[in-house]
Structure formats: structure tokens, C-alpha cells
Amino acid sequence: MTNNPNLGVSQPESFYEKVGGHATFAALVDRFYAGVASDPPLRALYPEDDLGPAAVRLRMFLEQYFGGPKTYSEQRGHPRLRLRHGPFAVTPTQRDRWLHHMLDALDSLALDPDDDAELRDYLVRAAQFMVNSFDEQ
């Protein structure tokens, strides 16, 4: 529970606060992008030479989604995940590559099992939602 000085009452912690806030999400995203950098087929989906800007965007998105700062929307507007990823062929194979690195990054956090399960469930569902092509070529 967190104490809200404006209301004088305790409010439940957000998931973001419960799992460690910014430091946890930064560690998750940093580990994830280290995996992406070493995976040429997945790396090819990222048009920028530097993965840093993509990492910042993902971290801000996840922080906001899980109850942290609203920085993502303040800087970029509505997430529109499918629209933003539309120019890229996100195939089931690319989804699986993405999930491999993201779940490896999640494992590295050693979260409480219930928190791990909640975050893992979201990541798996989000990855599936992003598939927009079945042309594996």
C-alpha cells in the first residue's frame, strides 16, 4: 500500500511499484535488447542503427501499462501498437524470437511467482496480438 498525501488514505500499490518500479522495467528492457542485438533475423525488424530509442519506447510503454509514469502517452500519444508495428512483417517466427528474448529477460528478474506470471501472461498475449503476417518466406 502507498500513502497518498492528498487523500490521507492508503491506496494499493500498482504492479509497477510492486515489482520494483523503473529499475525493474529498465533491467527487463536492457536484457531483452541485448538478446535482440544478437539475433540477426529479429534485429532486422528494428530500422534504427541504435537500439537505444526502441528500448526507451518499450520501457516507457511497459511502465505506463503496468501503472507507472504516463511518459509514453505524454511523449508519443496513444500506443496504437498494431498500427505502429504495421510496416513490419511480424510473423509467428518473429513473435517466437521476440518472446524467447523477452521471457529470458523476465526470467533474469527473479520476480515473485505471481508477479512473474502476470507479466509473462501479458507479454505472451501482446506478442500474439502483434502477429500481422503469416508469410514466413
Rank of each mutant, 00 (worst) to 15 (best):
L45Q: 10
A27P: 00
A54H: 08
M102T: 03
S73A: 13
P40V: 10
L106R: 05
L123I: 11
A26Y: 02
P79A: 13
R59K: 15
P5N: 08
Q128H: 15
L7F: 12
H78I: 01
Q11Y: 11
H100G: 07
D135G: 02
E48Y: 07
A117Q: 14
P69K: 09
P5M: 10
Q94K: 14
Q64P: 00
S133W: 11
L28N: 01
Y33F: 15
R125L: 14
E13K: 15
S133A: 13
V56F: 03
G68D: 00
A26Q: 12
G20P: 00
R84L: 06
L99F: 05
L99W: 04
M130Q: 05
R84M: 10
F32Q: 02
A110C: 09
N3S: 12
F15A: 07
Q11G: 01
L99S: 04
L106E: 02
E17I: 04
Y46D: 02
D116P: 01
P87S: 09
D107I: 06
E74G: 12
G20H: 02
D135F: 09
S73R: 12
A23D: 13
L99E: 02
D49V: 08
G86C: 05
G52E: 10
L42Y: 07
R76S: 04
V19R: 01
P87V: 05
H85L: 09
L111E: 02
Q64V: 05
D107A: 14
F61H: 03
P92D: 07
L45V: 04
